[in-house]
Simulated scan of single mutants.
Amino acid sequence: MSSLILTPSAAQRVQVLIAMEGKPNMMLRLGVSGGGCSGFQYNIELDDKTGEDDVVSEQHGVKLVVDQTSLELLDGTEVDFVEDLMGASFQFRNPQATSTCGCGTSFAM
């Protein structure tokens, strides 16, 4: 899964969230589903289970879980965590996206 990039900032935030959950075996699950204002929507959650079609990797001390279908749509995507005056959020930079919505949580291909 080397084509999916988790920045050090995102990894650090995920580690904080896992610590808050009190479950050190949690992993970051990334996915894509139909919906959102642009056609596809990014999904991000903590999970402690994997499925048959999941690919697991580790970056910056965080285990990433992505299903095969989502992995194709996320190829080359960088997941970052950004804090600024407007707030804090995970951001996706997907080179395959032909357009994104204003909030950055959905995209078209």
Rank of each mutant, 00 (worst) to 15 (best):
D48Y: 06
G34P: 00
D53N: 05
D48T: 06
L30E: 08
G34A: 14
D54G: 01
K23M: 02
S33L: 13
S33C: 12
L30M: 11
G39Q: 13
F40G: 06
D47Q: 09
L30N: 10
E58S: 06
K49W: 07
V55Q: 07
G35S: 07
N43K: 14
E21Y: 00
G51F: 04
D54F: 01
P24N: 09
K49F: 07
G35R: 08
Y42H: 14
Y42C: 14
N25V: 04
L30C: 08
T50D: 02
L28N: 08
D48H: 07
S57W: 04
N25S: 10
S57N: 05
N43Q: 15
M26L: 15
V55A: 06
S33R: 15
T50R: 05
K23A: 05
G51L: 03
M26P: 00
V32E: 12
G35K: 10
Q41N: 12
N25F: 01
M26S: 06
K49L: 07
L28M: 13
E52V: 03
E58H: 01
D47W: 07
G35H: 10
M26I: 00
V55T: 08
G35C: 08
L30D: 08
S57R: 02
D54K: 01
G36M: 11
N43W: 02
S38M: 15
N43H: 13
L28W: 03
V56Q: 04
Y42G: 14
G34I: 11
I44V: 14
D47E: 10
L46F: 09
D48I: 03
D47I: 09
C37I: 00
E52K: 04
G22N: 06
V55E: 07
G34N: 13
L46P: 11
E45H: 06
V32L: 09
D47N: 11
Y42D: 13
G51A: 07
T50I: 09
Q41P: 00
E58A: 06
G31N: 11
G36A: 12
P24L: 05
I44E: 11
E45Y: 07
E52C: 01
G39A: 13
S38Q: 15
P24G: 02
Q41F: 12
K23H: 05
S38I: 00
L30A: 11
D54T: 02
G39Y: 08
T50Y: 03
P24V: 03
G39V: 11
S57L: 02
L30V: 15
K49V: 09
G31C: 11
V55Y: 05
G36K: 11
K49G: 05
S33V: 14
K49N: 08
D54Q: 02
P24C: 00
T50M: 04
E45I: 01
P24A: 12
D54W: 02
V56Y: 01
L30P: 10
I44G: 13
V56W: 03
M26H: 06
D47S: 14
K23C: 00
D54H: 02
Q41V: 13
E52A: 05
I44L: 15
C37L: 12
S38A: 15
R29P: 04
E58Y: 01
L28H: 08
I44Y: 09
G31P: 13
S38H: 08
F40H: 15
C37M: 12
R29Q: 14
G51S: 05
M26R: 13
E58N: 04
G39E: 12
M27D: 03
E21H: 05
L28Y: 05
E45S: 15
V55N: 05
D48S: 12
S57H: 01
G31D: 10
V55H: 07
G51H: 04
L30G: 09
K23T: 07
K23G: 00
